[in-house]
Amino acid sequence: MRISFTKMHGLGNDFVVIDGREGGVPAMTAPAAAALANRTTGIGCDQLILLEPSEAADFRMRIFNQDGGEVEACGNASRAVALLHGAPASVETDGGVIALEPVLGGARVDMGQPRFGWEDIPLAYAMDTLNMPVGWGVLENSAAVNVGNPHVVFFVEDVDAVALDQLGPEIEHDPLFPQRINVNVASVEGRDAIRLRVWERGVGLTRACGTGACATAVAAMRRGLVDREVAVTLPGGSLMIAWSEDDRIVMTGPATTSFTGTFEWNDYAGDAAS
């Protein structure tokens, strides 16, 4: 069976998008997702995105990380899906229903309300999530935010001075985070500007992370470091993040279609196709 896909990216965070809203796509499995995401033997991507019918929204978006693990949310993928869909839509994700719409050069996504309770992140035990009394090497005094998926944020003087490739996997797999964690290091450069690097759970260092930008912006706003609308600049480019008075996070930024193609399902899914 040949399956069509669209290769897309948001600020260099890239996706293989499979549109199964009309059916005809076999059930996705973690091994199949990992095989398709493999950059050497597969199509290659940070995340595989599967669109499906939904009873709760216009359609459902499922997100599989590079290691095949399914996760709750992906901001950059949401913008890519808005571009692919071509019209405003409500989208069911495992992190909740979000609203998206294409705009000139990209998309705007209502990411919903952030959550700050220790059990909402989740953490292994209770603690203050705005000023967490834990640390790893040079990284300490973090904040935790769930924006559909879990993030821990560290504010540092220079994001490039942090060995995130070493500390990222250590923090991701720390027992404090029973569902693992996305790791963000950020530098505040003004009331309206943040620089950010992200170690993504199940992926590693990425050029951009939309939910990481949302979580970092909200953490900075809660600490009074920035205003309620801020530009977050990652290695791949910038996103605008606003936290409205009604407690909703709105992310605006670019998305791009790279190419389209097809693949033979059995080449990647093996027994999963039967």
Rank of each mutant, 00 (worst) to 15 (best):
E52K: 12
A273W: 12
R62Q: 12
A217G: 14
L205T: 07
W243Y: 00
P178L: 06
R39L: 00
S258R: 00
A242M: 07
I49H: 05
N184P: 10
T40Y: 13
E200Q: 10
L11I: 01
V162Q: 03
L167W: 14
F116K: 09
E101F: 06
D58L: 10
F154Q: 09
G68V: 07
D58A: 07
R191G: 15
G204I: 05
C74D: 08
G112D: 01
D165W: 08
P169H: 02
P175G: 04
E119L: 05
V226S: 09
E140K: 09
D247L: 08
G12H: 13
L176F: 01
D174C: 06
W265I: 07
R2Y: 14
P254R: 02
F5N: 02
D165C: 01
L100K: 00
D174T: 05
A269T: 07
D58I: 03
G137S: 09
T260W: 02
R223Q: 08
S54I: 06
L11M: 11
G42Q: 00
V153K: 12
H9A: 05
E264D: 14
G148F: 04
G135C: 13
V16C: 11
D174M: 06
E55R: 15
N38Q: 01
A163N: 12
V232T: 12
I181S: 13
R195W: 00
